[in-house]
Design a protein around this nucleic acid. Sequence first.
DNA 1: AATAGATCGTCACAATTGCAACTAGTACCC
DNA 2: GGGTACTAGTTGCAATTGTGACGATCTATT
Lengths: 151, 151
Amino acid sequence: MIRDEKAPPLVLENFIPYRLNKAAEAVSQRFARLYREQYGLTRPEWRTLATLGQFGTATATVIGTHSSMHKTKVSRAVLALEKRRWLRRKRDGSDRRIENLELTSAGRKAYAELAKVAHQFETELLAHLGKRGESGLIAGLAALERLHDSR
Amino acid sequence: MIRDEKAPPLVLENFIPYRLNKAAEAVSQRFARLYREQYGLTRPEWRTLATLGQFGTATATVIGTHSSMHKTKVSRAVLALEKRRWLRRKRDGSDRRIENLELTSAGRKAYAELAKVAHQFETELLAHLGKRGESGLIAGLAALERLHDSR
DNA sequence: AATAGATCGTCACAATTGCAACTAGTACCC
DNA sequence: GGGTACTAGTTGCAATTGTGACGATCTATT
């Protein structure tokens, strides 16, 4: 048995949190180009659009919870999408603190296009991973989600 | 066969890039607490320390490449670690643009402690994922890395 | 119905980051 | 060997992000 006394205590490129972060970053960047270059959206704006497209109507707080964004990020993204006339604010009948947000028809159109782009990106991504990579990644993510949800 | 015509075009919480990002973020945040609360390090500082601990000596450029950080981030992290007297700059004999960076003994001590913390964190993380989650995650990350390295 | 405490969204401010320009130095190459 | 192009690292500035406080509103308690 050979023992290497100079082995570094930690090898960054093998360290799971680092690898996970780097992989996520790379995927995000690649995907972001699709909505940034074509539509000029930022990531918070994209997430807001996606949430609203999915829900039909939502408050800023709901958007933040659903898309894991801080409320100030949501606030700014909503403002930007409103300026672009992709969403509208409607006051709530029973609670005047709340804004019920919904996409305009232009917003729904953009959402439909971007949802298609997103699906295609995901499909291609998974295809490139191969069968084993795909099922592995999905199982790994599910395990991480279970871990974090239980805290 | 029932068909739901109102199914949203995209469900964010099932979208792989989003899930990957969220999982990575959560793991990072949890790990960051260990070096932030105990040592007052930022993430760029931690990565710089880790790289330098691993390599013994490295230039700022090498640190950036190895730890996937922009050179300005490295520059600022190096300055911070230098002020803390955890690293030293040495001029290169043959190229005076280069700074050969190395940890001081205080830096090496901190690195040794943090490397241990890191390993422990990783071990516990993987243990919590279960056998299937662990091997899946590793296979998935490997597949993503192959994909990105080949671009 | 008055008060206390929570929630919703926004804003001002500070910290962090990224970009582009810069200085200093090296390499090429005619 | 003088010009040109490249590389290493830093800095100033702008954009992005996070924090804390705020006004407005709602809920619960008494």
